[in-house]
Design a binder for these strands. Sequence first.
DNA 1: GTGTTTGTTATATCTTTAATATAACAGCAA
DNA 2: TTGCTGTTATATTAAAGATATAACAAACAC
Lengths: 132, 132
Amino acid sequence: MYIEIDFNSDEAIYNQLCDQIIMGIAAARLCDGDPLPSVRQLADDIGINMHTVNKAYTVLRQQGYVKVDRRRGAVISVDPGKVNALAELKESLRVDIARASCRNISREDVHKLVDQIFEEYRSDQSGEQGGR
Amino acid sequence: MYIEIDFNSDEAIYNQLCDQIIMGIAAARLCDGDPLPSVRQLADDIGINMHTVNKAYTVLRQQGYVKVDRRRGAVISVDPGKVNALAELKESLRVDIARASCRNISREDVHKLVDQIFEEYRSDQSGEQGGR
DNA sequence: GTGTTTGTTATATCTTTAATATAACAGCAA
DNA sequence: TTGCTGTTATATTAAAGATATAACAAACAC
């Protein structure tokens, strides 16, 4: 669990935590069934408050990335059946690409970046991922 | 100037304003030299405070999308020479694609979305855009 | 049993951000 | 002058983010 928090960022800490865990799942550094540290332990490791970690875990659960077991704590459990996922991605891309387009970044440039990122996320495995 | 603000969104109003104007530039509905409404008028149109619009304009100026003339007000003026643009785009894509990847959205799916969005942004013109 | 750790909930406090409300100023144009 | 522009200043309200304690029930080790 390598978690890097930028305390000078304008991004909320709990949001950075969510992002890093989700990227960890995509990169297959975190797999289905893997347990996350307890809220108290992770908070202590990073040097933040317990409730900040708890909020991140709560959001991750609501968005279908982890399940919480009273005894085992938070466990990676990705729910791939989110119907709005494609629409949400498109809306997010719309803003990013608008900014890029103003900077004369081409369609081909974006495709290259997408490929590079998928390479990062698939480097440890070649087949399916994030399934059941 | 079609501006749509979602007052129930978790996105700040001034941020929604920035995004919409930037997307307007990318879609060529706003072109270099076009004037934006005065902060007072746009605030009145949308039904928000003058300072909220002013903050949006200030951010847009800092990020190189508009220039502000004391007499003419805010004018579209895109500065394409932002060296970090590519790195910033990649960092943003990394998070988006991580989420998408967990939902089993493929590299090809993302490419399709990117193409669709570039179609939207290039529908009114075929050549260069966002230049000097 | 006791003791510890787990997630969870409930307060309370502090800080920052977002948004609003007035107000005033300087520059420019009719 | 009158009216518009951006800009700045100040104040206030509301919400979000983060922290600090504290307590509870469930699970497990002993």
